[in-house]
Nucleic acid binder design. Structure first.
Lengths: 222, 222
DNA sequence: TGTATCCGATACGTCGATGTATCCGTTCGG
DNA sequence: CCGAACGGATACATCGACGTATCGGATACA
């Protein structure tokens, strides 16, 4: 006689989470009803309340799941790069890469961001996730640039924030007008000149600037 | 005996619009109820239904009102700049300027953006507004850079999109973690090197590049 | 100042989403 | 393969938001 959870419970949970992503992406968190989520998953609301206390709890579970995957995915792509010297262009290619499934997640996480702006508790959760993401990103960035023979002239944490901002802000425009701005287009156009502008050749120490970086170094931010 | 609208009607309408901004910013469009809007405005739902057919219509009226103000404000700040030569820094200062009231509008317009991603009709409305905004911005940009003695090496339309992306993406982070990233910080840090990187001195035609831009021109995007 | 029109207030009916209590099929250890 | 615990289905009670029909006060023109 079953003492703990049975095998079907995690399957039900997973189905509800997957259905929740679809429903939230399609209608938004507030507009989507628990009934709609259950319908997509092939269950009734009874199953839902057996697994989650509320729509909020479902959402947080979904966000947690996504957070782990995003971090794992980024770390993986960073690790997948060949050792030795690399070009800026290969770094840009990674950062400009946006999967089709990203759209649903964009809709859901952006709505969560709006919620976080209003609710300190949600803000804390989101900030934790974003900090981990930026940390991974920052590590990859410095590593890459070093391998490309360059060194940052701005705080890497702020650069990571800028890259996230460009990605999020760009995706918003891309999803509103897919024909006008393909996802990743801003990254492909601007990241290479940008990264060049905020870094300097490693061989040129601050004390003896390379003449070719002279103009740019006069523009560094204080 | 009154034949057309009386004087109190536009006042009621304005009060409802102002209250709607507050309520939508505080709770979100879906979570906010018509009742809450009316309460803030000091009216009952009877007044609401006498002025608007639905919450959607109220929202669109609010968006329209805001659109006009944003465009007027941007054009005004552009026009307010002194004639003659200017520095990149003064341009950056304008772009980094973010008023406190922006927060409420950010919450409302971002929610509308999410709606637009799902609804083609809303997408069209939003795209129209954004296009006008970018157009104004692009005009100001080329004008400024010319006055600063520089010329863009990328399409100005795409640069305008990038600036909007940085602003929106940056505001998201700023509002989630106000203590970590003051509004406008990304612009202040990165816009000057960025604008320098995507432009070249006007005196240096493409056919005979200035040695100092040599390195950068090899990084231009195709 | 009177009165016709306007417009916001009030009261009510309706509907859909939520949450819970309970039932019954399913799972799995003995 | 039996039975007890598990877990999803069903049915119901509740509640809040919406929209409308109607009333009464405010407005503005004669």
């Amino acid at each position: 006689m079953p003492k703990g959870v049975t095998s079907r419970r995690p399957r039900t949970r997973a189905a509800l989470l997957a259905a929740a992503l679809e429903a939230f992406a399609a209608y938004g968190f507030h507009a989507a009803t628990i009934e709609q989520v259950c319908e997509r998953a092939g269950f009734t609301r009874g199953a839902f309340y057996s697994n989650f206390a509320s729509k909020e709890e479902l959402f947080l579970a979904l966000f947690d799941q996504h957070s782990e995957r995003v971090l794992a995915g980024l770390a993986e792509r960073i690790a997948a790069l060949p050792a030795g010297e690399v070009t800026l262009r290969s770094l840009v290619a990674i950062l400009a890469e946006i999967e089709p499934a990203e759209r649903d997640w964009y809709l859901v996480t952006t709505e969560f961001t709006l919620h976080a702006i209003r609710d300190p508790q949600a803000a804390w959760v989101l900030a934790q996730h974003d900090a981990r993401l930026r940390s991974t990103l920052a590590e990859g960035l410095t590593d890459y640039l070093a391998r490309a023979g360059r060194r940052l002239t701005v705080p890497v944490e702020e650069l990571a924030r800028l890259l996230v901002a460009i990605r999020e802000g760009g995706l918003a425009q891309s999803y509103v007008e897919p024909a006008e701005l393909p996802p990743g287009q801003l990254e492909r156009r601007f990241l290479e000149p940008l990264l060049t502008a905020v870094s300097a050749p490693d061989s040129a120490p601050d004390s003896a600037p390379d003449p070719r970086t002279d103009q740019r170094s006069s523009l560094e931010v204080h």
